[in-house]
């Protein structure tokens, strides 16, 4: 087992973990946002979907939640450890700083990452634990959890809808670098597939985040009521 400890501590091992957990979190995000796009199909579709998630067989919901938590914790822990090492590797900064080709997103990963973490904590506190900015409980005419009304009510307040839209853009930036970086970290760089690795992957991240941002925007302008 000592080799696993050594591997996760090494610079490259840390990057493998960042890539794999990042990819896992992205897969979750696809499911999460696709599910929530059901808001466009009305109260019945959204609430039925939410209920079906809670009744997944074999306790799959908890398996998914557990896996998600492990992935998220590993991603955050290793990210901060890497950032700490990176700062230590350059104790004295340059007086004159310049870059030649690094993108804005790639230079700000620790910052966008921290903002995403804060957003996730707020998002959980609001919609999962109902601790902040929650005016519920909400129940629909069939006695189900009324996820639809909960989300629409929250987003009718421009403070929350704007906060969510901005957060989606921050996640977009984080993903635009992360989704291309993960391939390189795992050693996947190939002339024939670099279009996928460097262009299509960041594009997929942006499409997903803009789709998610469209939900609070749609509520704000009254497309979803």
């Amino acid at each position: 087992m000592s080799w696993i400890v050594r591997l996760q501590k090494s610079s490259l091992g840390s990057k493998y973990i960042m890539a794999i957990t990042g990819a896992g979190l992205f897969v979750f995000l696809i499911g999460h946002i696709a599910g929530n796009l059901l808001l466009y199909f009305g109260q019945e579709a959204m609430n039925a979907y939410a209920l079906s998630l809670h009744h997944l067989p074999y306790g799959l919901l908890w398996v998914a939640r557990g896996g998600l938590l492990v992935f998220a914790l590993a991603h955050v822990f290793i990210a901060y450890r890497l950032s700490f090492h990176n700062r230590a590797a350059r104790p004295q900064r340059y007086q004159y700083e310049a870059t030649l080709q690094a993108s804005f997103a790639s230079r700000t990963m620790p910052y966008t990452g921290t903002l995403v973490l804060l957003f996730i904590l707020f998002h959980l506190a609001q919609f999962t634990f109902h601790l902040v900015a929650y005016n519920g409980p909400y129940t629909d005419s069939l006695g189900r959890d009324d996820v639809y009304t909960m989300v629409v009510n929250a987003f009718q307040n421009p403070v929350y809808s704007v906060l969510y839209i901005i957060s989606m853009l921050v996640i977009g930036f984080h993903l635009s670098h992360g989704l291309s970086s993960m391939w390189q970290s795992l050693g996947l760089n190939h002339q024939k597939y670099n279009l996928l690795f460097r262009k299509l992957s960041p594009l997929a991240g942006w499409v997903l985040c803009l789709a998610a941002a469209s939900i609070p925007l749609a509520v704000l302008v009254g497309v979803i009521k």
């Binding site: 590797a89 993108s103 230079r107 291309s180 970290s185």
Partner: peptide, 12 residues
Amino acid sequence: GFGNCTNYFECE
């Protein structure tokens, strides 16, 4: 004590 790679390719 070198740092880690962020894949932002300034090196290249």
